[in-house]
Amino acid sequence: MSEESQQPNTLPGETPAGKTAARIKGHLTVAWIATAFTLATYLLLMISVAVKPSFLAQTIAPGGALTLGIVGGVLIILLLIGVATAFTIWNNKMDSDA
């Protein structure tokens, strides 16, 4: 209890000290951008299948069977893995430097 009452108007996990607070705020901005970016690709995919399902059913090569939707889907998953890995490595490195 006493520990918390010493830190008014801060969220848990944040400390009010200027430098650390600024650093954590910077981390959070990057976190929000990473979230927004990955979720935006997903939202675009969903809107595309709802508005015009035939768009993603186009084949990559004429006469082939592999579609834009499958290749795009795989790329979205790989993108998510890539961003998550990069963010985690970066964030953990920042923490250990602090």
Partner: peptide, 21 residues
């Protein structure tokens, strides 16, 4: 595949935002 991607897309919020907090 749409459902698979959707399931994977639950992770950004967990990894980027909530894990630390």
């Amino acid at each position: 595949l749409i459902y698979s991607i959707g399931a994977a897309m639950g992770w950004p919020v967990l990894v980027f935002l909530l894990a630390t907090r």
